[in-house]
């Protein structure tokens, strides 16, 4: 197999393995479908150009996330776009979700959007990307203890806001 073919194959493997997670992560940090897609494509374009620098395939996910976060920061460091599209995403019709649970998920999305970035981002890394607390610590450049605190507070805030909103009180207005 030629080097070029190997390079293409390697890139395609990265795209297949990580594009979904990266898109979801991008969507949650920028809140806009077009921008999220643009961010992911730009991330992979940069990855394609620098692919030879990736020596350890086990570090690929962190490498891509680092590129994406930098890209987002560079593009929107002074102007964070408004969340527009997350509300339009339909909650999946999973059989295990009862109607009340689906309503909770809708409310949960609204509350996730309202979380301060310092709480939202570690939570996204943990739940969407499957990062460990140590990996989040490495990625964000903060201590593991701080990560644990932010994750705990993120969940507590979400639970608190769900209770405050009253799942049965406000949900019906959404449908």
């Amino acid at each position: 197999m030629s080097n070029d073919t190997e390079r293409h194959a390697r890139f395609n493997q990265l795209a297949t393995a990580y594009s979904t997670d990266l898109y979801r992560y991008a969507m949650w940090i920028c809140g806009n479908d077009a921008l999220a897609k643009d961010l992911v494509q730009e991330t992979f374009l940069r990855a394609w150009k620098a692919l030879d620098n990736l020596k350890d395939s086990g570090a690929a996910k962190s490498w891509l996330i680092t590129i994406l976060r930098r890209e987002f920061a560079r593009t929107f460091e002074r102007k964070v776009p408004k969340f527009t599209d997350v509300d339009d995403v339909v909650v999946p019709e999973k059989s295990e979700l009862e109607p009340d649970d689906r309503a909770e998920v809708v409310l949960l999305r609204q509350q996730i959007r309202k979380l301060a970035p310092k709480y939202r981002e570690p939570l996204l890394m943990q739940v969407v990307l499957g990062y460990s607390c140590q990996e989040i610590s490495d990625q964000l450049g903060i201590t593991k203890s701080a990560v644990m605190t932010q994750l705990f507070r993120a969940r507590e805030q979400l639970k608190g806001r769900l209770q405050k909103d009253g799942v049965t009180g406000n949900v019906h207005e959404l449908f």
């Binding site: 594009s19 897609k37 494509q41 995403v89 979700l97 909770e104 996204l124």
Partner: peptide, 18 residues
């Protein structure tokens, strides 16, 4: 519920575009 809430749909053509 958290996992479900965060699991947004992904454009069908995303991987092909990449």
């Amino acid at each position: 519920k958290l996992k479900t809430a965060l699991q947004l749909d992904v454009p069908a053509d995303l991987n092909a575009d990449i």
